[in-house]
């Protein structure tokens, strides 16, 4: 009885997977993205990229939650953060995760870059992935900088003043940079709006597709080290995928299936 239900469920599941696969190709895409040979030596170091991705996803999720209460105006910004921290349920947790994962993000990105650098993973054919990664790193730095002002407390305010004024030392365009960033010639409501727009809309919108490009390039060339250290494992994996593909297309003979069971 249980065996039959199980078999039926598996059958239905296969039908559903096949149906979706036929129409979207999602199943084979999932397989392509999930199966990846990873060098055995120093395997933990290869999790740093995933850790970065995880922390960025946390930033997106908690950031969206914070937007439910945060008010980006000079007279309410600080109060709304105070409300999040003291009155909203789990507000401290949500904002704490946003704050701490932002801090850890910088550290983890540094480690991720160091791993890439010292293992030589930026070399051909992965140069462009290094370039995309550096752009992502710069975007995250600007995100951290713009997020600091949104608290609108003494700490964030003066740090931003110093940060913006560093921009005033750019040759020839110093004044323009400052006026563009603060939205006028004095820090005020426009400054907060600008930093809010940059932090919440502009940069995440650039960041998300670039992460996609970063991952695509990673999958295109594979983890560094896999191709010459693990050719054997790679060959086995290819063989297995080939067999599975064959199985899915033509199905197995009745006898074969029975024999397997």
């Amino acid at each position: 009885m249980i065996g039959r239900v199980k078999a039926q469920t598996v059958e239905t599941g296969k039908l559903l997977a096949d149906w979706i696969e036929d129409r979207t190709g999602a199943v084979s895409m999932m397989e392509k993205f999930l199966y990846e040979p990873v060098p055995k030596r120093g395997a933990w170091l290869y999790t740093l990229g995933s850790a970065t991705l995880f922390l960025i996803v946390l930033q997106f999720l908690t950031g969206i939650l914070l937007l439910f209460y945060y008010v980006p105006t000079v007279d309410h910004a600080w109060n709304s953060v105070y409300y999040i921290m003291n009155e909203a349920y789990f507000g401290q947790l949500i904002r704490g995760i946003h704050y701490w994962s932002a801090n850890f993000l910088m550290a983890v990105i540094g480690l991720h870059m160091a791993r890439t650098f010292f293992s030589g993973a930026y070399k051909a054919p992965r140069e462009l992935n290094w370039v995309v990664g550096v752009v992502l790193f710069l975007l995250v730095i600007v995100l951290a900088f713009t997020g600091y002002l949104l608290r609108w407390d003494q700490d964030g305010f003066w740090a931003s003043v110093v940060g913006i004024k560093i921009g005033s030392y750019s040759p020839f365009i110093g004044g323009y940079v400052v006026n563009f960033l603060i939205g006028g010639d004095v820090i005020g409501p426009a400054t907060l709006s600008r930093f809010f727009a940059i932090h919440v809309w502009l940069l995440p919108a650039i960041l998300a597709p670039l992460i996609g490009v970063h991952l695509y390039l990673l999958r295109r060339h594979g983890e560094f080290g896999s191709e010459f250290e693990y050719t054997e494992r790679l060959a086995k994996l290819k063989e297995r995928q080939r067999l599975e593909e064959y199985e899915r297309r033509y199905g197995l003979g009745e006898e074969e299936e029975e024999r397997r069971e």
Binding site: N179, F180, G183, G184
Partner: peptide
């Protein structure tokens, strides 16, 4: 649109204060 404050202060010489 984005550069409005820059144009107003740097080109037209207006101040927010």
């Amino acid at each position: 649109f984005v550069l409005t404050p820059l144009i107003k202060t740097e080109v037209e010489g207006e101040s927010d204060v």
